[in-house]
Amino acid sequence: MYSNPKLPEGINTSKEHPLKEFSILLIGALALIVIVTFALGFFGSYLAGKIPYSAELKIASLYDPPDNNDSSKSEQALHAYLQQLADKIARAEHLPEAMKITVHYLDGDTVNAFATLGGNIILYRGLLEKLSTENALSMLLAHEIAHVKYRHPIKSLGRGVAAGIAIAAITGSTHSNALGETGLLTTLHYSRKMEQQSDEEAMRVLYKLYGHINGGAQLFKEFQKMREQQDLGESPALFSSHPLDQQRIDNFKRMATLNQWKTTGELTPLPDFFSIKKTEE
């Protein structure tokens, strides 16, 4: 009269394997995170470009610029020369009056140079002693000054901050300091597009100053040589923010033919005190 039927299994539960659902959800969530981070980074970069330069200077003043405290006489002369060359290039690039370029020379073996917030440009001895002409040095300075001109440091920071906030919101971590601990001291990451924009601006200025672009490509060749020596091999183009060295050299040649810039011409030697540092070692 009264009975409980035996119910078939699987009425109240899903038969689907739990890992299948899990992997679909996980891929979806990761894709969402990537899209949100990229989108926020993009808008962060865009909005940061709208920050007035005076505000950027205030942000930059939060950090101490890296300077050698005990600079020798030869180093002071070198620094003055670099600063004067940078000012000349800044004028050639038509930098606004408020955008002051400050050159910092660091006595380090690192083969690197970078532009950062507030018009600060950091040059390492390691890179400078590899350059043999003023033309190559001008190319380097013009490249870094172009970063400042196009507001790349603040755009890069804006992108980093926005993406960092997105990641902190998703992972729920509250420890992250949005501006970072060493904002000015570390190299900001510029996109490949930014690097190319700066390369092209630097070439324009090189031509304007010297009437030819001879010697400009030495910079890229030095980077290429260094990487070959280190035997690290170049990382795949997709992951590298600096366009691959060979690509930069090719781009240099392409730009030259496109604009009919002279690729030969007299090279300007570097001043004598420039090499003093090297012989002292």
């Binding site: 899903s14 659902e21 959800l25 969402l32």
Partner: peptide, 16 residues
């Protein structure tokens, strides 16, 4: 898995 489900909505089969 249920936490991931929260993002998209739908049947929370892992609690069934």
């Amino acid at each position: 898995a249920a936490g991931l489900r929260n993002l998209f909505g739908g049947k929370v089969s892992s609690y069934e």
